[in-house]
């Protein structure tokens, strides 16, 4: 947005940006896909000036379906992806950290939350912890401001933004609100290389002890139902809901009265703040 105007005073300096990509999961079909946030992170890296981008994937890449997803990342215009092959259900962080140390990256970009597995969002924090670097969450733009300093635009809820400044090296996770990633070109994805690297894998013991099931629908909370002490209160609580629902239609009121009703709803929903 506004960051480009403040561009680097020292544009010649080259940065190494490492982007971590994972195999995502489509929220509707559950099929492997290019992870939305990871590809946005890669897009962000590709749009930085004076950078060399390294893309790293750690995971079980033996499955052809998962490989085709990595090829989708390659199709964004990459020559290769470093693949550190990990067994299924292993903790990828040690392998990633080892790889990043070898690379001597200045900036590490990741998605905020994996689309498959636990999706806790821990990976960037653990990497930052292991490397002793600062970790900046929810980035939507990263710009080199010169002299090793970077300006990061951070996504706040409701489309608001905050400007942060941080010195390289650092880790940043990219928010879903970042710019859409570029299209993947099938043919260049097929031409790119998946360069396998052997780094030992560490089994994830916690994940082996949990039970994973398809998501259940969360029950909707019925307002004040619990508070009711008597059957009548419970009845009232259960029936009150339908009474408040259903669209009110205002026809005959004056324009001012109509505006007042809309205004009240807007205030009650908190989208405009009444100053008093």
């Amino acid at each position: 947005m506004m960051l480009h105007s403040k561009l680097s005073s020292n544009p010649a300096k080259n940065y190494t940006v490492a982007t971590l990509v994972s195999v995502g999961k489509h929220p509707k079909s559950g099929r492997p896909r290019r992870s939305d946030q990871d590809s946005k992170a890669l897009e962000l890296a590709l749009n930085m000036d004076n950078r060399s981008v390294h893309v790293i994937h750690a995971g079980d890449s033996s499955d052809p379906l998962r490989q085709s997803v990595l090829r989708e990342y390659l199709g964004m215009g990459l020559e290769r992806i470093d693949v550190t092959r990990q067994n299924a259900n292993s903790d990828a962080v040690p392998a990633l950290v080892e790889r990043l140390k070898m690379l001597q990256a200045d900036v590490v970009l990741t998605g905020s939350r994996a689309e498959s597995g636990e999706g806790s969002g821990m990976v960037p924090y653990l990497i930052a912890q292991a490397l002793g670097w600062p970790m900046v969450p929810a980035a939507v733009e990263v710009t080199a401001a010169g002299d090793g300093e970077f300006e990061i635009l951070q996504a706040l809820p409701r489309g608001q933004r905050r400007l942060l400044k941080v010195r390289a090296p650092f880790v940043a996770s990219v928010d879903s609100a970042a710019a859409e990633s570029r299209q993947t070109a099938w043919a260049s994805g097929q031409r790119g290389q998946l360069q396998e690297m052997a780094i030992g894998s560490n089994p994830d013991e916690v994940m082996s002890q949990v039970t994973v099931e398809p998501a259940r629908k969360r029950p909707k909370r019925i307002a004040s139902a619990k508070k009711a002490k008597t059957a009548a209160d419970r009845f009232k609580a259960a029936t009150a809901k339908s009474a408040s629902k259903g669209g009110a239609i205002l026809v005959k009121e004056s324009a001012e009265e109509k505006a007042q009703v809309i205004y009240d709803l807007l205030v009650s929903q908190g989208v405009i703040n009444k100053k008093k």
Binding site: G24, K25, H26, P27, G30, R113, A114, E115, S116, G117, E118, G119, V210, T211, V212, E213, P214, A215, R216
Partner: peptide, 9 residues
């Protein structure tokens, strides 16, 4: 879990 597709207990 990720993508809101799984419940992990």
């Amino acid at each position: 879990g990720g993508s809101e597709l799984t419940d992990i207990t």
